[in-house]
Nucleic acid binder design. Sequence first.
DNA 1: TACCAGGTCCTCG
DNA 2: CGAGGACATGGT
Length: 231
Amino acid sequence: MLKPTQAYCLLLKSFGPQGWWPVTRNGITEHRGGPKSEGEKWEVVVGAILTQNTAWTNVEKALAEMRKQNSWSIESVATATEKKLEKAIRSAGYFRQKAKYLKETAKYIQKNYGSKIEKMFSQPIGALRYELLSLKGIGPETADSIILYSANKPRFVVDAYTRRICGRLGWPHSTYKETQEFFESNLPEEVKLYQEYHALLVKLAKRHCLKREPLCENCPLEKNCSRPNDA
DNA sequence: TACCAGGTCCTCG
DNA sequence: CGAGGACATGGT
């Protein structure tokens, strides 16, 4: 069976570095890993919530609209009316729920950390994750996305794509935790590696494993993929 | 038309 | 716990 490190090498060689998470600069979406400014960290948090079960193109419109109507910063989101937020993020779907989630999150950071997101991130990963999970609207994947791409700490992100690919490769995929532990115990604990790996899996999924029926032509993992499942 | 998109919450058994 | 439904827009 293919090992996670081997798969990573094949994917990287085939697709090149992806540089996640996407951040906006001068109205343009930029893909870049590594450290981020305070504003970019907040953008990742907002994006992580808005992109739940939603195409990123729809999220981009919502992000732009939030900026346009001046309900962007932690303070602004914390104090904006839900109606106003809903209007801004409408394109991202589930807009009533997500408006609540964003507002609650912003209020939490404002109240407990003086709107300094960096301060919240300065605690150990376990404590941070526990705290994020206590917020309504932040589940395991969103929490780990925030930890990995906003706080720049090592937590492997598992999403629907990751699970589907794991199913096809014969890797553990029955629960979130199982899949996450599989990657984390088989890889060196490096932030950049985790960031790139997740991004590469998303790329692979979109190119070859998107549909129920995989498109195996030119798939970098084809030779090593047993496809035992169709999960 | 129907299905899908970088999930999460709530309610039941 | 785990399954099942609700949440909602925009693209193919």
